[in-house]
Amino acid sequence: MIEWPLRNFCQARSGDKGNTVNVAVFAPDDVLYDILVRELTADRVKNHFGNWVKGPARRYEVPNLRALNFVLQGALDGGGSRSIRIDNLGKCFGPAILRLTVPIPEKVAQRYKGGPYHEFGGIH
């Protein structure tokens, strides 16, 4: 097993509604999706954002898209028009989550080396 950051193989997009941010993380195949389901808990995601997320975090599984959708309440410093943060709309929560790492079997990792994410410096 090797620890891989999600940026090596996942897509992620975040959006805002009021003071809530949702972050959807997408795995490229079933094996990696199962790893995400096992490893990427709502607590881990909430903790990653520290005091930026003041409310509860909930996780929804979306198997048809091989995605996990995290809903983070109290995450936007009051909401887009009330926040004093630079990223007042939470657009960077998606990318930020890609820092988290999960254990990947070597064999699976090999498949993604040299893939699309390799080219842009994601995979080392």
Binding site: R13, G15, N22, A24, F26, Y60, L65, A67, N69, V71
Partner: peptide, 13 residues
């Protein structure tokens, strides 16, 4: 397409 499908979605069900 799939990235937009969950954009600003909470419970996808």
């Amino acid at each position: 397409i799939k990235e937009q499908m969950l954009y600003e979605i909470h419970d996808p069900r």
